[in-house]
Amino acid sequence: MAAKIAYDDIEIGTELPAKAFPVTRATLVQYAGASGDFNPIHWNEKFALEVGLPDVIAHGMFTMAEAIRVVTDWAGDPGAVVEYGVRFTKPVVVPNDDKGATIEVSAKVAAKLDDKQVRVDLLAKSNDQKVLGMSRAVVRLT
């Protein structure tokens, strides 16, 4: 593992560069194919409405995949991620238009642990709503 961030340079409260990830219906179709998750709530509006959703929603695992990019882009080496967990609190609603939705992710170092590891707490929002709860990663720095 070769993270490009040095443990000694990091303090509790250090903010990671925030990012915004666009997601359209085309994104969801592509993710369905790559992940093998073809649940129609992620691409079929009629089905989504029938089961009580406001519209097509993004795969929770897609949102989870985007959120950790704030950490892996910062650390450089994706292999530096030791733990990663989230709670799916609200769906990311993806309208059928040119804009789609945006997932905004910010993160900061919440704790310094042993073995050059830090705990990073993530905040993921879409349409001003928190879409992930208890979103945390443990990362091994150099």
């Binding site: 929770g60 991620v81 030791v82 733990e83 990663y84 989230v86 709670r87 799916f88």
Partner: peptide, 13 residues
């Protein structure tokens, strides 16, 4: 069924 939580703990990637 809906997905509530997800967590991973890695020994290596």
């Amino acid at each position: 069924v809906v997905h509530g939580d997800q967590k991973f703990a890695y020994t290596r990637p």
